[in-house]
Design a protein around this nucleic acid. Sequence first.
DNA 1: AACGTACGCAACCGCAGTCGT
DNA 2: GACGACTGCGGTTGCGTACGT
Length: 276
Amino acid sequence: MEIEDGVVCNQREEEILGLRRGPWTVEEDLTLMNYITKHGEGRWNSLARSAGLRRTGKSCRLRWLNYLRPDVRRGNITLEEQLVILELHSRWGNRWSKIAQHLPGRTDNEIKNYWRTRVQKHAKQLKCDVNSKQFKDTMRYLWMPRLVERIQAAAAAAATAIPNNMNMSSSQVMVPPPENSSTAASSDSLGTQISPVSDITDYYNDPVNNNCNQDYDQVNRINYVPDSLTSPSGYFHHGLDFQAREQNPQCFGSGDTFDNLWNVEDIWFLQQQLNM
DNA sequence: AACGTACGCAACCGCAGTCGT
DNA sequence: GACGACTGCGGTTGCGTACGT
């Protein structure tokens, strides 16, 4: 049998075995769910055969983990989740599954998609590489503190609206303490210790932990904005802020979208970084 | 209304690691 | 130790839909 490459081989194999590809049907979903309910997950290749699914084991696993699992959390990524993603990505890079472990109900695929479609888009629009120091600094010193502010503002507003503080989803979002912080140094088991998202907001607001807020304040104190610089905020009108706005409309004034976290300050900040 | 473009997401692919034989 | 099967991960692609002209 002539094999040109692995892809052709796989395609022929699948044709011979009558394997299906592409979007899953409702019937396939039900078959997979029923089978896993009865027999449990794992051993995906034999599971696919035993369940009578004309799919690869890989395909079944992916469908289950990313879509059918009962604890999969759907919908927009919340502000807290965004903060956790940014923080953990700055620490671990593209370790999506590791990051996903700290966002209950979120899949690595979803986080990866979020990063690619949102964060990398911002980097592109700011005309810098997503892995560059400039972009990382902008993220850490501008975007993340702003997220913290938004989260705290939303929490405060929700606390006012709901006296017994049954607000937000903070308790569901877990981040390990920053590895290079004094908090981390004093923790018992780095990596296994889980703390609520409030830790991370405390972290970014505590001048002892890093100079993030000092830098941020400095940037915020700047009143002079060169006329030649125009805000890119007009670019950003999609997605991320909708859920937060729906949950806490009082926190969002007109035209105040999450994507407007990127504004003329970011351009200024990047230019300062480039001039250093 | 029709068309083109951008966006978001589900699914696929290749590779590397793990495990059993 | 060598080999093959399986699993999990990160990167990439393709499609449906929303949006703008």
